[in-house]
Simulated assay, not measured.
Amino acid sequence: MRGAAEVRERLRHVRWIGGGSGGGKSTVARRLAGEHGWRLYATDDVMAEHGRRSTALDSPLLCAFAAMDMDERWLLRSPEVMLETFHWFRGEGFGLIVDDLLRLPDTTGVIVEGFRLLPRLVRPLLAEPGNAVWLLPTPGFRRAAFESRGSLWAIAGRTSDPETALRNLLRRDLLFTERVGAEARALALPVVEVDAAMTEDELTARVAAGFGH
């Protein structure tokens, strides 16, 4: 069994970008990876694989979510219940992220991004608190980001009441962002609030400066 100190030392070359959906994590991570020659690990890209590697024993919320239809997921429960029962928001599968990172070569830097990087789970892995940052988008910024991607209705549009489902989804994401921000601040970890007044260049520079670059 690996000790916490060993894992922390082996992941010393890793930088982490977490936070709410639509906050610019992927954009900033791609830019920094390109500018500094870092390997990019996007946690969204491995969600399907991690779902297949999970079991009812280690990921009961994921299995329960998978068994629901779209209305059960996004219409028949309150945003508060959605928040409390969404598997990735509760840390299920985080160990699979760590396992993946430990298998990567440590000869170059790695930048990890995604909403699954919960502050309380990342903090024990940090050699330095400044090796991680959480981006906290305002509701307006989040909605605009989804609209610009063309993904605003990607989930809600598959329910029987897309408008209600979208309101529920956006409310759940707001609650998650608020929780992540409070958790990061309580652990004295860096956060950046992202709104429409902040340009992509400014956001990237803020994150890079926090990482010491």
Rank of each mutant, 00 (worst) to 15 (best):
Y41A: 05
R52K: 14
T138L: 00
A144G: 04
H13M: 07
E35R: 15
A145W: 06
L175M: 14
R53G: 04
R172F: 09
I97C: 03
H87C: 09
L32Q: 04
L189Y: 05
L40T: 06
H50L: 08
L76T: 10
E178W: 11
T164S: 02
L96D: 09
E200R: 03
G157P: 12
M70H: 12
R2E: 08
D45K: 14
V46A: 09
L57V: 11
L102N: 13
A209S: 08
R123Q: 11
I17C: 02
D173A: 08
F146E: 08
D71I: 07
T55S: 14
R31F: 01
L189V: 05
S21R: 05
G109I: 11
A196P: 00
D201E: 11
G19I: 05
G212P: 13
S54A: 12
V46Y: 00
W16C: 04
S59H: 11
G140I: 02
W153L: 08
L57F: 14
N168D: 03
V28W: 02
S26F: 01
E9Q: 14
E6Y: 01
V7R: 15
E193D: 15
E72K: 12
A154Q: 13
V191K: 10
D195R: 10
E49W: 08
L136H: 03
M47W: 09
T199L: 05
P129V: 06
L121G: 00
G91C: 02
L104P: 14
M198A: 03
L189T: 02
N131G: 06
L62I: 00
I155M: 12
H213W: 13
T164L: 05
I155D: 10
H213D: 07
E72Q: 15
R172Q: 15
G212C: 03
L57K: 15
G157Y: 08
A66H: 10
L169Y: 07
P139K: 02
A182R: 15
L189E: 04
L126Q: 04
T27K: 03
G130M: 04
E193L: 08
R90V: 05
L118I: 11
A154G: 03
E178S: 10
L121E: 07
G114A: 03
V46E: 09
F176M: 09
D106V: 14
R90S: 10
M68Y: 09
S59Y: 02
D195W: 07
R103K: 14
L76V: 00
L32C: 02
S148P: 03
G181R: 15
W134A: 03
S78H: 07
R149T: 04
N168G: 04
M68N: 13
L32A: 03
I155W: 13
A188P: 01
E183Y: 10
G24K: 01
A205D: 02
A144E: 10
R206K: 10
F94R: 11
R171Q: 12
L61P: 14
T43V: 15
E193H: 11
G51F: 04
W134T: 01
A197P: 00
A156Q: 07
L75D: 06
A56S: 14
E35M: 07
M70L: 12
A156I: 06
E6A: 05
D45P: 08
G23V: 01
A209H: 09
L62T: 00
E193I: 04
L96M: 13
L174K: 15
M1W: 10
L104Q: 15
G130K: 10
L32S: 04
F65Q: 15
G181A: 13
V14P: 12
T107I: 06
V191A: 04
A5I: 12
F86P: 12
R179L: 10
R143S: 01
